[in-house]
Amino acid sequence: MSVGPGAFLALAAVLFAAGLYGAVARRGPLAVLMSLQMMAIAVNLNIVTFTRFVTPAEQAGKLLPVFSLTVAVLHLGLGVALVSGASRRARSVQRGSAGPAGAGER
């Protein structure tokens, strides 16, 4: 392969900057979460590029891409849980049942 690590790293940098733009500029929580996901994709591309072009001296480094992938998905899961929880509450408040959710919410 003649494409060196520089090309991969540059692509990751551009993707990361695009995600940074979305995370800072956007208001909607889902849009922000998607932008964060894009940043995570870029970070992971960076790490995988380095594992291919650098011989890792230590065992721990090999696990970095797997761990970072999982952590990014966990951030997304927590955000999604919070978005749906908050919107349910907001709706039940709007409906006039300001109290805690009743049987109708199940």
Binding site: L36, A42, E58
Partner: peptide, 24 residues
């Protein structure tokens, strides 16, 4: 989400530290 953004920036930096030193 702000905290996750900070975490991503930190991880981006860590990826360079790992990549250029081969160590974690």
């Amino acid at each position: 989400t702000r905290s996750a953004l900070a975490s991503m920036i930190a991880l981006y930096g860590i990826s360079f530290l790992y990549g250029l030193t081969g160590a974690t």
